[in-house]
Design a protein around this nucleic acid. Structure first.
Lengths: 90, 90
DNA sequence: TCGTTATTTCGCTAAATACCAAAATAACAA
DNA sequence: TTGTTATTTTGGTATTTAGCGAAATAACGA
């Protein structure tokens, strides 16, 4: 879970995730909108992938990133377990 | 929200929060259990306070830390808003 | 094989963070 | 005022992270 919270702690990465909410995007598209170098962005993608927050689909030389929504439940459960005094079923 | 996710990204700080789940504790008590210097711990407390995840109660020279459970809902709402494709009410 | 295109890896610097021990501070009791 | 106790601040080093441009890689089409 460290990976997930670490990924979410960066404003840039949260912005990337918000962009992916609407639709899947390529690294190039995201790079254009964010005014951040492609190599820097590549590092952010690694962090997001390590946290399993995004999934990739490579077509030619183009890699499309999309949100891995299945992690949402895990994150929610973790937050509840971490900060709630009562058990989840209460 | 950066502050909250940043606070949660540290294993040490998550452990502190878990300890506070059971009962409120002083900085000294936590320091004993964690084998981490008091000055270092003081820094971690500042991070947790900046994220509004803990509240303090000073009696004499002793400061007792306890979990600020009211933030839980905020964190959950943020995660949902950040990662869910559908609106919360759907 | 030779380009072309999209992305990553590779140095590199600057800024942020974690950690410690020692000194400083705060809040009293005597 | 002096001493005691709990915590914070300070000063220091070491590690991590974000950022860049340039070079390297991958996956083709011609």
């Amino acid at each position: 879970m460290s990976d997930v919270f670490n990924a979410l702690s960066s404003p840039v990465r949260r912005q990337i995730l918000s962009m992916l909410k609407t639709r899947a995007m390529t690294a190039g598209e995201i790079s254009e909108k964010l005014d951040i170098g492609k190599s820097t962005l590549s590092g952010h993608f690694n962090v997001l992938k390590a946290a399993d927050l995004v999934v990739t689909d490579k077509v030619r030389t183009t890699i499309t990133y999309s949100l891995n929504t299945s992690v949402v439940e895990d994150v929610l459960a973790s937050v509840v377990g971490l900060l709630s005094k009562n058990k989840p079923e209460d």
